[in-house]
Write a protein that binds this DNA or RNA. Structure first.
Lengths: 209, 209
DNA sequence: AAATGTTTTAATCAAATGTTTAAAACAGGT
DNA sequence: ACCTGTTTTAAACATTTGATTAAAACATTT
């Protein structure tokens, strides 16, 4: 076997997948390396053998989590051929698709930032994608020559889109408790929102103050 | 001194206040009893002397945190004299006022639910206040005899109100990183939203699908 | 099959951390 | 001044937990 390269990827992957799951569920401080090892079905020492330390493993999980979220987003926003209206549809859909696969992701990311903003800043290069989002909408605003929203910072609209899309996932456990829905009920609720959110956002762009 | 009653409330309060701060910032697992003791400026053993255990102290913090959030809300919603429009203004304002004082609160609560929903269910009686919110809007919907939203579950509107109000606080550290705002800039942003959110919500109630 | 490099395991270490203990300091009543 | 109950402190305890070690198991090459 080639030296030092192909170290049986399956074990390495198993650990990372387990770390993803546990970290997202419990956060960094709440996750024990033993839990991750057990979840991965491997010996505890292997975790350090492959990833050196809990911190390093965590950093990888954070980076890949954010990567999932931001890279796709960037690609979408930069498509110059698509209209603003279409972009709103697509961004909403993109978020929802991603979050349906990783419903714990938003709270995980936001929680870790809150618990230690400095560490986060160091570990992750600040993504300037969201800033591009602002630029996009700002341009579009002019393009559409809408009167009456001149005084509303388009950043509000972006935050609204993101809030209405992401927040229900962050609040999912609480919503499930309150409404007594099962996974299916929640899913249906989200699918309704997939259609509704773009309508609301577009109407906001037309509202005169 | 009277026996067993007035146990120098100041110490007990100091511990609780410190616990509030640390728990909300770091979460349960991320908080060390030593941190709390230091923050409170008291000897470590006093924490157990007054509150028996970290768990018990945590439970108190959770309960009072939720209390702040829900009790006021309930009072407001039950005011039969105020119109729906006014209620929307007031609920938005109430949330914002509360969150300006405790910006870490939403992420703290939601994060703890995510990390262990069962523990949370046990520790806190499920608040049925939010359900009343639903009822309120449902009634109002009929009152207003709005056509066209017959097929939109008013729960969506409530979630939108809550999302647009709470989420920016949950994302506050990230927003501050992205926009490079200081506390003041963020504050101004929120004050704009205090006025804007009710407008958006009311317009949603009028949108035909 | 011997040698060499890689992966896995069981056992152990050292530090962190929630909790307890025993004694001291303090306050109020007699 | 003494007693009694309360509050505070320093030290210690026991467990948890991230990390390491040394040896075993496995695979590949020669």
């Amino acid at each position: 076997m080639e030296k030092g390269v192909n170290k049986d990827a399956s074990t390495e992957e198993k650990i990372k997948a387990a770390a993803f799951k546990i970290f997202q569920q419990k956060g960094f401080a709440g996750s024990r390396t033993r839990d991750i090892a057990e979840e991965a079905g491997i010996n505890l020492a292997l975790l350090n053998y492959y990833y050196r330390s809990k911190e390093k493993l965590f950093k990888i999980v954070i980076e890949e989590s954010l990567g999932q979220l931001f890279i796709q987003l960037q690609r979408l926003i930069n498509e110059e051929s698509t209209s603003l209206s279409e972009k709103i549809d697509k961004i909403t859909g993109l978020y929802i698709d991603l979050l349906k696969k990783n419903p714990n992701l938003p709270l995980f990311i936001l929680g870790e930032i809150q618990s230690d903003p400095e560490k986060f800043k160091k570990q992750v290069g600040i993504p300037d994608i969201s800033i591009q989002e602002i630029v996009t909408i700002r341009q579009a605003k002019e393009q559409m020559k809408i009167t009456g929203i001149e005084n509303i910072d388009p950043f509000h609209i972006i935050i609204n889109l993101i809030s209405m899309t992401i927040f229900p996932f962050a609040a999912r456990p609480m919503i499930k408790i309150l409404t007594k829905w099962d996974d299916n009920g929640f899913d249906q609720f989200i699918e309704e929102r997939r259609q509704l959110i773009p309508v609301w956002i577009k109407s906001m762009l037309k509202i005169e103050k």
